[in-house]
Design a protein around this nucleic acid. Structure first.
Lengths: 334, 334
DNA sequence: GTGAAAGCGCTAACAG
DNA sequence: CTGTTAGCGCTTTCAC
């Protein structure tokens, strides 16, 4: 069995309380004693039992993270960020994957709530009221979503779309299609809205293409619609969809970008590797993960005082090879 | 504050012990009492504190999972499998990402050991002796690696390579290159060995191409070597590398598969979506994750009796569009 | 069947 | 500065 605080106390010839102090608040114990305790602890390979500690302090040192789909590179990157930040702050993280099912979010939330200090809900698919209903004991921070007053970390989706659209307009595109993502995705709504606003300002026609699953297949399915829409450029909900678009366009022999420009969103690793390399709106995934942990931890420490409850990170268009000057068209607004 | 067992006991007019029994060993308490307790528990939204329970039972209901890189789709899939199986067994899982650094594996291992019942070490990069040194308090199961007597779940890498090579041989290839992955990767060693054995049996020349990072970039870097080697086909350590190969080959105007056949390994989602679609050795990632949890749990329950300590899952070649009959060559073994 | 009491490993008052 | 005491929420003897 592993060494307990008692063993260390014994070995060092002090009380358990002293061991506890020597290890957690070193300045409260005399240097010589501290040294003795530390030596004993090292000797025995003592590592405090966090569960036992949590029982009394109310802090477990654990964070929970719930994501829709780990196999989506976007979320994988977020998880890496969260995990790294948590580790730096000496916390561990529970991971849970909902498989894009809104229903299990609440379940997982409740299941984890007791074992963690705080919970990060990444891109939750559940409706607002359902999220509000979960008044867990533990602090919840939303990521990639805003719902009421719940603290959140988001990225400036609307501005990213603005950059993408302005880029296309500058290239002469006057009719642009948007391939929408999941209806229940907050990011999707934000992106749509940002696009609509910018389209009005820029005098561009925006064609809205139904809702598609945020995956490669979604893009494949949407490609023909985009072509038929008469648009000369298409902006996809995310890179996976954009990659699907590229694939189907290629299969149909429609050259990108000469006949059709394509813009993605997220800047997942794959997008730099496609042929041609994808122009995309870069989202700071890792940083968002880190920021969320930061917000959560500050909330836990300060008890919601001081620090702002919302944090919004910037997005940045990355121009690669899938966008080009618009081809001459037949009947465009001009 | 959340409801405790005391609250429930009070509400139901019984003792804490009865509540505990009614919930954990229902057959030990009279049906009417049980009903009363269950009602009270539901009423108060009572959920037992697992940390407190763990303190006494010695079981936390938590599992730990350590992977080299979450952003590698292969590991993402494994994590999904692990997570799903754990959830089905009412366990939670801690995730940790080592960023491919062998050094942090032991650290993470020790950090998590106290908080979990069992640990899954996925594709560990640390050398055997270092792994052996970690005699954590918690049960450790290796995945994608074998080291001494440690329980493990692996896939039949060698057989997968055999299938790939036989396929190429059947297509007339007589000189095949292998782009190796990380030197410290056990899978890589297995794949190399399997390949060498099959090459001898099949009278094929095998060209070994240095060690490359198991990523897209690795493949990009290896492509020119593969071409220069005079091989008519190349097998990559994994799909990411194969995709990089495809990319560089395309950039150089070398048609795949007519001038060069390419085979990957793992069958990550992306490989079906590349152009042309990648021929690859499919590895049951999710299933491996599930199997590992199964093994771990059985070990925890049975205390290592009965069930075998090693489990090997089959691999399966999937022929898609990157392999073809070998082109006529100048000076081949023939 | 059920309750009382002890105790898992640890920290937080409170004395000294 | 350090030891003593109490108790976090839960399960488990051991009586009844």
């Amino acid at each position: 069995m592993a060494a307990t605080i008692r063993d260390v106390a014994h070995a060092a010839g002090v009380s358990q309380a002293t061991v506890s102090r020597a290890l957690s608040m070193p300045e409260l114990v005399r240097p010589t004693t501290r040294a003795r305790v530390e030596a004993a602890a090292r000797e025995l390979g003592y590592r405090p039992n966090r569960a036992a500690r949590g029982l009394i302090t109310g802090r477990t040192g654990n964070l929970g993270l719930i994501v829709p789909d780990l196999s989506n590179p976007f979320f994988a990157a977020v998880v890496k960020g969260v995990q790294a930040a948590a580790r730096a702050a000496d916390h561990s993280v529970f991971i849970a994957d909902t498989d894009e099912e809104a229903g299990v979010e609440a379940d997982l939330l409740r299941a984890l709530a007791k074992q963690v200090d705080g919970l990060i809900l990444c891109s939750p698919r559940a409706p607002d009221d359902e999220l509000a209903a979960v008044d867990s004991d533990s602090t919840i921070v939303l990521m990639n979503r805003r719902a009421g007053d719940r603290p959140s970390v988001t990225v400036d989706n609307a501005d990213g779309m603005r950059q993408a659209l302005e880029h296309l307009v500058a290239l002469g595109h006057r009719r642009v299609a948007f391939v929408a993502g999941p209806r229940t995705s907050w990011s999707n709504t934000q992106r749509e809205e940002g696009l609509h606003r910018s389209a009005e300002a820029g005098h561009v026609e925006l064609v809205h293409l139904g809702h598609f699953p945020p995956q490669f297949e979604g893009g494949v399915a949407a490609a023909d619609l985009a072509v038929a829409s008469g648009a000369t450029a298409v902006i996809a909900y995310n890179d996976l969809v954009a990659l699907g678009l590229l694939s189907r366009l290629g299969a149909r022999g429609i050259p990108v970008p000469s006949a059709m420009s394509v813009v993605g969103c997220d800047d997942i690793g794959m997008s730099a590797m496609s042929h041609p390399a994808l122009t995309t709106v870069s989202v700071p995934k890792r940083a968002a993960g880190r920021a969320t942990v930061g917000l959560l931890l500050s909330l836990l420490d300060a008890g919601a005082d001081g620090s702002p409850l919302h944090r919004e990170l910037p997005t940045q268009l990355i121009v690669r090879a899938t966008t080009e000057v618009a081809p001459p068209t037949k009947g465009t607004t001009r």
